[in-house]
């Protein structure tokens, strides 16, 4: 190996360590007795689950895990179903006002979300949806990004395929889900990963519409636990709740790492 390659390798290893080591440290610290966290570097002197036990006794973390799973799964499913319906209509059907509608959808994408945050909350109040799962799920059932992704992908599929399906007596629904879906798997994966992740990691919207502890999503509960006094300034307990919040995504990421990177990069490139 050339010397320049070795220097490069050392630099990259240093960078990788600075991204990985803090997470490694966090997991270890959550398993270390509070008094020893201050000295922790590579391996703890003794391991304990007391931080986790204390956290379980203070907050309904399993309930919030269930809530987050329900909310993220439901909105992902909704975005896949309704997003592909909308995208299909905009790409393949001819109707009056289609281009205007498409323009409006693109326009909403360019608006910063700050503009609609409070009005959306007031809407939830008027619907009586504050402190219900509906406030978390229903507004997330479709979004402009998914519509755009599906529209672009459907555009690249030849009309012949759809016409042939129509001749065979397929309705529009069957065309979308049975004929077209198998041809657009990469788009489905991308939209699913992006939607699921942004739902799983979102914390501002839940903070606004949910007050009941048993309906809170996991990032919300962990946030309020860390900010409020209930962690009693105990670092290990806070870190334990953070580890539990990160774990599902870390596991999913280590298995589907390639898809995560591709999906996120493609959203950057699209916008």
């Amino acid at each position: 190996m050339k010397p320049s390659k070795i220097i490069l390798f050392i630099l990259l290893t240093g960078a990788a360590l600075s991204f990985l080591y803090p997470f490694y440290w966090m997991i270890l610290a959550s398993l270390t007795p509070e008094s020893q966290i201050g000295e922790l570097r590579v391996a703890p002197k003794e391991l304990t689950f007391s931080n986790y036990a204390l956290m379980f006794s203070k907050i309904p973390i399993w309930r919030s895990l269930l809530n987050s799973t329900i909310v993220a799964s439901a909105s992902t499913l909704g975005v896949l179903i309704f997003g592909s319906m909308t995208g299909y209509a905009l790409a393949k059907l001819r109707f009056k006002g289609r281009d205007l509608l498409f323009f409006v959808i693109i326009f909403t994408m360019t608006l910063p979300f700050q503009i609609s945050l409070i009005p959306n909350y007031i809407l939830m109040v008027k619907f009586g949806w504050v402190d219900t799962m509906a406030a978390l799920i229903v507004p997330a059932l479709n979004n402009a990004f998914a519509i755009l992704m599906f529209r672009q992908t459907f555009k690249s599929i030849p009309d012949d395929l759809i016409d042939a399906a129509r001749v065979d007596g397929c309705g529009e629904m069957r065309i979308i889900y049975q004929i077209l879906w198998p041809n657009i798997i990469p788009t489905i994966i991308t939209v699913a990963i992006i939607t699921f992740m942004s739902s799983w990691n979102d914390v501002l919207w839940p903070l606004i519409v949910i007050r009941n502890e048993h309906l809170m999503t996991m990032p919300q509960l962990v946030t309020l636990f860390a900010v409020g006094g209930r962690a009693e300034a105990q670092l290990g307990v806070k870190l334990a709740s953070a580890v539990l919040l990160a774990l599902p995504i870390i596991i999913a990421y280590s298995i589907f790492q390639k898809y995560f990177i591709q999906s996120m990069a493609s959203t950057g490139l699209k916008s």
Partner: peptide
């Protein structure tokens, strides 16, 4: 590939986790 994946890890993790972690760091 490993380097690329490790640089990307914080991107997928919730900002809540990252903030609690860095508050300690």
């Amino acid at each position: 590939g490993f380097f690329r994946a490790s640089f990307f890890l914080p991107v997928v993790i919730s900002g809540v986790v990252v903030t609690i972690l860095w508050q300690q760091l």
